[in-house]
């Protein structure tokens, strides 16, 4: 089981778009068979095995559930075991965009302004995802890595914006 890739583990095609329902059903079925709760009376080695299997299934599920991690995982599979260190030229336009957003977040003084920013940033997400899919399909992995970085940045910024929002609401 541990040799399987995460998509094969859940009987899913190796691609970016994921059938959430099928994923979640397959995850449940796998955990029902391997979770330590099903081995409370088994011997120590079976318990250890169940712990490892269950942890592996959780890791696989969490990787495939999260779009950024799923995209990074696809690239990992495509590029094989030896992962090259990517010293890529940064995407200059996106760098500027990042700086602008960061400034906007710093300057935002009320919940409405932050909400506005979150909406703006989130709007870009499907665009970046589509960009990733086409780069990945064409084998342009460097560009695909750029897209993963962008996705990561977007999620991080939204999380920061939300935590600032909740601080404001607490005051």
């Amino acid at each position: 089981m541990f040799q399987q890739n995460y998509f094969a583990l859940f009987d899913l095609p190796v691609q970016f778009s994921v059938d959430r329902k099928a994923l979640s059903l397959a995850f449940r079925a796998k955990q029902s068979a391997h979770h330590p709760d099903k081995f409370t009376h088994a011997d120590a080695s079976a318990q250890r095995e169940s712990l490892q299997a269950s942890a592996f299934i959780n890791e696989a599920y969490q990787t495939l559930s999260n779009p950024t991690r799923r995209a990074a995982y696809l690239l990992e599979l495509a590029e094989g075991q030896v992962r090259k260190e990517h010293t890529m030229r940064p995407d200059a336009d996106f760098l500027m965009q990042q700086i602008t957003w960061r400034e906007q977040l710093e300057d935002a003084l009320d919940v409405e302004a932050i909400d506005c920013l979150i909406d703006d940033v989130n709007k870009l997400l499907p665009v970046v995802e589509a960009d990733f899919v086409s780069a990945y399909q064409q084998g342009d992995f460097e560009h695909a890595h750029h897209c993963v970085d962008k996705m990561q940045f977007i999620y991080k910024l939204v999380a920061e914006a939300e935590s600032k929002e909740s601080r404001l609401l607490d005051e």
């Binding site: 330590p36 712990l51 490892q52 269950s54 942890a55 592996f56 959780n58 890791e59 599920y61 969490q62």
Partner: peptide
């Protein structure tokens, strides 16, 4: 909030 068991 990571589901357990987990190994990383």
């Amino acid at each position: 909030n990571t589901t357990i068991p987990v190994a990383r």
